[in-house]
């Protein structure tokens, strides 16, 4: 396993503005009826194959997704973001995807980062490209969130032995070989750490790529709370001890 740093200076990257059709983007959405439309509008300017996994929403999230030329899968029950991503990855692989990306439904991510992740995979001959807001940009990130995320980085280094700068960033891209090594079993928020664990265990090469995470009052109200960090740590340690 090797960590390769992606380009630090985004402007220096000659990246395509559109992803090839071999790339499938998985969007896990729960109660995102209001925000999903603009996110898909933006995403479809970059990606042609998009899978939205509605994780048992009761606000018409799938109906919104169905207005767009995207695949829509619906969990009949809310299982959690980890489970929804695994469903989407599974579907994308079945459809013959050569690359699979994950992307949040809440508008925090910039779709223009996806081609950069793709290029990073190609240029570095890596199987996993992981977005990092700490080598990229995170305008408006609250100080407490920054501290919690930093603590998460150290926790992950200790538990998984993987040296990344951002452990809970939802924008990533895998090659098919990489995606086949990922099997998310922690259904809820701890899946991000589980993915890193599996990347570390796979022995495959990964690369970190600077990305932008946009914070606003709206995204902060919906996203992970700082207090969830302890629950995530407990889920990971509990699972390690008991299985």
């Amino acid at each position: 396993m090797r960590l390769v740093r992606g380009p630090q200076d985004k402007s220096s990257v000659v990246s395509p503005t559109r992803l090839p059709e071999t790339v499938w983007v998985v969007v896990a959405a729960f109660r995102e009826a209001e925000r999903l439309g603009p996110v898909l509008n933006e995403l479809l300017t970059v990606a042609s194959n998009v899978v939205v996994v509605d994780d048992g929403s009761d606000d018409g999230t799938s109906d919104v997704a169905l207005r767009f030329p995207v695949w829509v899968l619906r969990h009949v029950l809310n299982l959690g973001q980890g489970a929804a991503l695994q469903t989407g990855i599974h579907f994308a692989l079945r459809q013959g995807a050569k690359y699979v990306a994950t992307f949040d439904a809440d508008g925090q991510h910039d779709p223009r980062d996806l081609p950069r992740l793709y290029r990073a995979l190609i240029d570095n001959d890596a199987d996993f490209a992981l977005g990092s807001r700490f080598i990229g940009a995170s305008p408006g990130i609250p100080r407490s969130r920054r501290l919690v995320l930093r603590a998460g980085v150290w926790f992950t280094r200790l538990v998984s032995g993987i040296k990344v700068t951002d452990t809970h960033n939802g924008i990533r891209m895998f090659t098919r070989r990489g995606a086949e090594r990922i099997r998310i079993t922690l259904n809820r928020m701890a899946h991000a750490s589980e993915i890193l664990d599996q990347i570390a265990q796979s022995g495959l090469r990964y690369v970190e790529v600077p990305v932008t995470v946009r914070y606003s009052l709206e995204t902060l109200s919906k996203g992970q709370r700082n207090r969830h960090a302890l629950a995530i740590a407990a889920a990971i340690l509990g699972d390690r001890l008991a299985t």
Binding site: L66, W71, R94
Partner: peptide, 20 residues
């Protein structure tokens, strides 16, 4: 329980979009 819900979701996958 996850496998069951996932299988249902995969079986019922739909492609959206008026034009598409």
């Amino acid at each position: 329980h996850t496998a069951l819900v996932r299988e249902l979701a995969l079986e019922r996958a739909r492609f959206g979009g008026q034009v598409a």
